[in-house]
Amino acid sequence: MELVFLGTGAGMPSRRRNVTSIALNLLDETGGFWLFDCGEGTQQQILQSPIRLGRTDRIFITHLHGDHLYGLPGILTSRSYQGGEGTLTLYGPVGLRQFTETVLTLSQAKLSYELDIVEIVEEGIIAEDEMFRVEARRLNHRIESFGYRIVEKDKEGKLDAAKLKELGVPFGPLYGALKQGKSVTLEDGRVINSADVVGPAVPGRIVTVLGDTLKTDSAVELARNADVLVHEATFDRSKADMASRFHHSTTEDAAQTALQAGAQVLIMTHISSRYGEEETEMLQQEAREIFANAFVAEDFWSYRIPYRITME
């Protein structure tokens, strides 16, 4: 599981930062990719990344401002030309269906795959399968904006093959029973307990990706104990009044949210174009004064999310 930052700027693209889009690389988990927001130019950014549109099967839009949305039509149509055949599910606020269907209809676009649009009406679990659960909550922005909490389900502990061999447990159905947490009885009458030969379950990872927002309790709840919190930090702390006026966050807001939530890592994005390369360290340092494990994302920067305990 890896986050790939395709666009890390705010408002409009600059020479250094494109507007917002983040990919979650799930090749090792599901064989595909998820996208979070699709600002203008996202498909051009994808061309310079390991992301493959044909294997992208979910797109989550945080809100309907253009710097998070205007790249979506190109993404949807290009997917048809890049081997995308399976269903693509699009999630986001009410209005996303009208925007998407209007653009596709007026441009007479023909998709080679099924497009499923899920508009979020109520907070809570919006998607769940055998591997992941996704929760959405409203944030505090000028228009309806959502944050997403992606929870990987716990993985079963590993069988200790060496110990099973030592105990004389024959390979086959008994291995499966032990893996399922059952006790088994061998031909000589010995009882083997699952807990003695199966390692502890591996806790799933938690990733939180927020849309634009003022500091809010909803963000803290979405990021509770997250392995990674991706939080907008449009302004430095000296511009708190400006952040409040435009319903955005500062580096200090992002850091306080990460601290209150008990997150492991904070990655800040949606950086105002007023900040050049030389100011990036200043923004990062402001956050680190509150939350030590904080980073400012750059376009094409990636972060691999480790398990908290070893999988071995």
Rank of each mutant, 00 (worst) to 15 (best):
E281H: 04
R142A: 12
E128L: 11
L53K: 03
Q98I: 01
G147C: 10
E252N: 09
D299S: 10
G124Q: 04
D154S: 07
T280P: 01
Y70L: 14
K153L: 03
P200M: 03
A297K: 07
L3P: 10
M268S: 14
I150L: 14
E144I: 09
R274P: 00
Q108W: 07
L115T: 05
S78G: 01
G83N: 08
A201K: 07
G54F: 13
G181N: 07
M1K: 04
R79P: 15
Y175A: 14
R237D: 10
E40D: 04
K110S: 11
K110V: 13
H247Q: 02
E128N: 02
P203C: 05
G39M: 02
S238K: 00
V207W: 00
Q260I: 11
E128T: 08
Q285S: 12
V228W: 01
G176M: 08
E114V: 07
Q264F: 13
K239L: 12
I59T: 10
G41Q: 03
R79W: 14
T8L: 12
A136L: 05
S49W: 10
L167K: 04
L53V: 08
M131T: 11
S218V: 01
S244F: 06
D299I: 08
T100S: 12
K215C: 06
R149N: 03
P200H: 04
G172L: 14
L106H: 10
L115E: 06
